[in-house]
Design a protein around this nucleic acid. Sequence first.
RNA 1: UUUUUGAAUCGCCUUGUCGCUAUUCAUAGAGGAAAGUCCGAACACCAAAGUACGACACAAUGGCUAACGGCCAUCAGCCGAAAGGUUAGGAAAAGUGCAACAGAAAGUAUGUACAGAUAAUGCUGUAGUGAAAUCAGGUAAACUCUGUGUGGUGAAAUGCCAUGUAAACCAGCUCUUGAGAAUUGUACGUUCAAUGUUGGAGGGUGGGCAGCUAGAGUAUAUAGGCAACUAUAUAUCAAGAUAAAUGACAAGGGCUCCGUUAGGAGUACAGAAUUCGGCUUAUAGAUUCACUUAAAAG
RNA 2: GGGUCAUUAACUCAGUUGGUUCAGAGUGCUACCUUGACAGGGUAGAAGUCACUGGUUCGAAUCCAGUAUGACCCA
Length: 120
Amino acid sequence: MGRYSLSKKHILTNSSVLDSVFSVGKKLTHSACSLYYLKQDSIEDLRVAFSVGKKTHKLAVNRNKIKRLMREAFRLNIPEFNLGAHDLVFVFFSKDVPAYNEIEDSIKSLLLSLSKTIKS
RNA sequence: UUUUUGAAUCGCCUUGUCGCUAUUCAUAGAGGAAAGUCCGAACACCAAAGUACGACACAAUGGCUAACGGCCAUCAGCCGAAAGGUUAGGAAAAGUGCAACAGAAAGUAUGUACAGAUAAUGCUGUAGUGAAAUCAGGUAAACUCUGUGUGGUGAAAUGCCAUGUAAACCAGCUCUUGAGAAUUGUACGUUCAAUGUUGGAGGGUGGGCAGCUAGAGUAUAUAGGCAACUAUAUAUCAAGAUAAAUGACAAGGGCUCCGUUAGGAGUACAGAAUUCGGCUUAUAGAUUCACUUAAAAG
RNA sequence: GGGUCAUUAACUCAGUUGGUUCAGAGUGCUACCUUGACAGGGUAGAAGUCACUGGUUCGAAUCCAGUAUGACCCA
């Protein structure tokens, strides 16, 4: 496994866990993205999920594209932040189809503020 | 040559770095519509999957096909100058219904005026209203009739393994006089029915494997056929995910548009979900072939 | 993945099955009357491509086919 890898183990798939993250977990927002997060003691690594609403983006092509961009940005930037075991959910809610730079900016700043809040 | 008409094809390419999914560990990895879910099948299941009625679909003639509501050819109607396009094109002499306004009258019809003919009436022709007016009238995309077809449910089907709980609780029904149930609109039939069955409220799981990708497959050639299509031979074939992979960045080259150049902008519609055959809808741009001659230019 | 419906005035709904007879009701809007003025009341008026595109028909909001948007059901 390389330094920048992000394989299927780290994708959050269980629906009940997702529900709990949305209801119990806390929320951060930056420009076009929101981040829900919840600390988990039972697991060792962090797990992520990405979401784009069907209301804002009707075409499946655009939804897939945005999710892939978000995952790419997360994959390249996560090694700089040393987070513990957490469940993260990124939600995209803007109505435009963004470029890669904008997504990377917002995800970077979200991760930065998350690490600050965890340390403090 | 432009325009017009028809048929068919393509659906940007290459390299590098970092990733994702599958497995043979080195390869492969999204379409012509993957879409809509409008039809037809394959495949699977149902303690009888049976019979009748109902309901629904289709409709010129002949052919193709696994099948079809699809496709091909021919005839007829309509549109077009032509090439060609288009049509839910069975039956009104089985029955029922419907037709505003106008008009004498819109079917238990046949009135009036004029003309013709006749012994006379009936009769024949013309007139006005209207979409339709005497013709065994129109309307079936009104009911209906005729012919043909359809059992129902859909990979969340179905089979196996693992994990885990509750053989608990409440209510109803029934031991042959038949409650209730058996994935179907109704009836009949058939089958099950006390370690029974139905409903309620509640508890647990919500993982894995198979189904799952080589098939009515694709391409080329030859033969048959007007064609759809069929037969034979040869070659060829690596997506298989499941909160759902097929991406990001960089460089170079195509193509289109703008611009005198430098250069700039754009590169559609759109993302597999069991698999096929069609139909319908969306689609930048490019290419090939055939056909017509009305118009414009030479 | 599979299925069922809806779309009519600015808003909420009738009418659609069964074709032609004025596309209607309430709320809101505009003008006038009533009042010293407002509210309320009364009178009158405007506002519609019947979601869109085609077809059948003499004639379509209504029948048929396709498209778009929205809602719901199955687990």
